[in-house]
Design a protein around this nucleic acid. Sequence first.
DNA 1: GGGCTGACCTACT
DNA 2: CAGTAGGCCAGCC
Length: 122
Amino acid sequence: MTSKGPEKKSPDQQTWYRKVWKVVCEIPAGHVLTYGEVARLSGMPRAARRVSQAMRRAPRKLDLPWHRVINAQGKISFPEDSSDWRSQKERLEAEGLVFLHGKIDLDRYGYRGAVDRLLWGE
DNA sequence: GGGCTGACCTACT
DNA sequence: CAGTAGGCCAGCC
């Protein structure tokens, strides 16, 4: 039977959200990840767009550090005149990050940068 | 079922 | 450095 499972919600569809939230949750304060990196760490390479979707649908209850996710250009992915943009910038600055020419230095605060520092040293 | 949208990315010019 | 083009794919009409 094709059976209409009443309470079968095919978990897979909601699982990937959880994976993304989990990864974002693990980003240490004072550091950032790009959407692409979060996607990769969630086991979904090239699913950067899904990450932004997960952000939008993330329950506030989770108290997710959404502000630690920025785009690959080191910039905040909101229009500069939006309150969301200002809010995110404030949160990041509160964690010690510095904006240079409206951008964040990914070599200093990003994932790749952190790895390079471990391999090459400061 | 088809088409548009989007807190994106990479590569190229 | 800026701008363009193609790719990606889950949601939502």
